[in-house]
Design a protein around this nucleic acid. Structure first.
Lengths: 119, 119
DNA sequence: CGCATAGTTAGCCGATGGGGTAAGTTTCAA
DNA sequence: TTGAAACTTACCCCATCGGCTAACTATGCG
């Protein structure tokens, strides 16, 4: 089936993307980076967590393509990837569109039924 | 800190929501339900998976508040909850807004700098 | 040089995730 | 009343997740 094929497709960006978003720490990191690039230590500071634990989140965000990092000297600076969240937003808005379309068709059907009964 | 407090907050709907979306099988279920309610067996049919395994996905979608189910006789019918995906879409669109706002401010700053150099 | 800073690597831990089987329950229909 | 259909429950399996500590590397600074 089509859906299954798509789901098994290696190029599906949605699973790692939604997985990246499914953690409060990682969402907070994204949130912090919306104001501009930051080094790992600055990102980690508000989180009551050991650095290696925090680094796993950073690595996961990078693996999901949500952020990029570059190292200058000792400092690893993290930056959001423009448009990285797009596929997630697109999937959700398409779902909403199909859903409201279905509600419209339901309304149309009810109208038609009402018309029939009036006849 | 504010972010930390929000993250620990029990009422955060985003983590279960994004978690629900972070699996291709569950996204396919949502997709199927966009055309209207369906019984579990009909939902499960296209997926090459044992029913108890599939049921776990249904349960997780229900726990995340994405779907509701009601049982009539032997048949458990699943239905999307209207607006359930809203918080996810809202979070993403707010992120996009802040991101583009930041780009606007950057552009403004570059403009100002250019003006200064011209003086 | 010597020491602090900023990451990194390696490995441990308990919990959860996504799959499976086997067997039980409830309902419908012949 | 018997049997199939449609779940449901109870368990097992192994991989991954999200946290930890300890020890290591590499860079900047006085």
């Amino acid at each position: 089936m089509l859906l299954i094929h798509m789901a098994n497709n290696q190029h599906d960006p949605l699973t790692p993307l939604f997985t990246a978003l499914a953690d409060p720490t990682r969402r907070a990191v994204i949130d912090a980076l919306l104001d501009g690039p930051l080094p790992v230590s600055a990102l980690a500071e508000p989180h009551d967590m050991a650095l290696p634990s925090f680094l796993k989140h950073v690595d996961k965000l990078e693996a999901a393509g949500v952020i990029t990092t570059r190292k200058e000297g000792r400092v690893r600076t993290c930056q959001l990837c423009a448009g990285a969240l797009g596929p997630a937003e697109t999937w959700l808005s398409r779902a909403r569109d199909r859903w409201s379309g279905k509600l419209d068709r339901l309304a149309a059907h009810l109208d038609a039924t009402t018309q029939e009964k009036k006849q």
